[in-house]
Amino acid sequence: MIRIVAATAAALACAATAHAAERIALPSPIAPLSAQPPLAGGARTSAENVAHSISAATRVAVAIDEAGTPFAVTATQRLDVRGLGDYFFTIGAPVLAVRAPAESESVPGMRTGSIIWAGFNPGERVLVARATLEPAKAVTALPLRIRVSGDTITLENATGITVGAFTADAPRAPLVAYLARLRGEVAHGRTPLQTSVPLASVPANVRLTVAARLHVTGTIGRKRIDVQLAKRTQIHGRGRLDLRVEPVEQVDEVTVTSGRALLREAIRATLSLARSNQYEEFLGNPDPAGSSRTVYVYRTASPPHAAPIATIGRHHRTWVETALVVAALAAALVAGVALWARS
């Protein structure tokens, strides 16, 4: 969080002095805009002097109740690790339990707030951890909120965030060129790069709300869903939800004419990419330069109910039963005495 505040402050400071310098740095298309995701501080590596190349793919399974409220979150992260040597990875997560599926070539460890991987990589190694997460902590970092009310299902993009930015007049050509380059980098799966652009007026600070665009597919009952979700949508339907959510990294064609409007769109595009990039990393990747992909799957399920407390049946005699028992005992006593007297 401190880093984010510092980065924002630095960006604003740059903005204030930029006109004199005539160039200003646009926001980074990959720097996170909030503390999470990734969860619990992300991932880090501490294995001596070995740098591993790692691709991370995470599948987050979210179990929701009939009202759309999440009650269980499980994350399965696959790390494809390349490079000869030791590794010691710490993947931050509010983890309750962790295990290795059969495809994993090692077994993960667990600490309070993290998954641990330690070992030696002979060149290529696949590490897979299936972690059960604390729902209360994991839910706040999920990209989609669902509300079910009767036959109306509201899907709400939960990635929106308001951040500091700036506005100014600017020459069009460099911005058009940068947006084209950004579009090409994203389309070809390359890491988008930050840039600086010239300004034509003193920049002014503004607040801007951006979100990661989400591609939501799946089914609601028998109805198929395929929507690009920028903010919120309502869908009519009934039945169980089975939705797949993927952050979309995309830069749209821009048709605006003024340099000021182009600058605003360029800033919005980079911040939106940064936000999408953030949600691609629900669990951190120990390789800062490695690729990360996350798919979120929301499914209706039955929340576990506490088992009903068993009631131990206690038999209470009525006064009639009690009187009969006393009478029987008294008769037995009398009979016994009589028998003893005659013997």
Partner: peptide
């Protein structure tokens, strides 16, 4: 003991965790 890591005498990370109390992993 499940939460701490030290640099071992051989320069390697030495640690336990909640699910494993082994300080020497099989890979080593």
């Amino acid at each position: 003991l499940e939460e701490v890591t030290v640099e071992g005498a051989n320069g390697d990370e030495r640690a336990f965790n909640h699910s494993s109390h082994e300080g020497v992993v099989d890979d080593d």
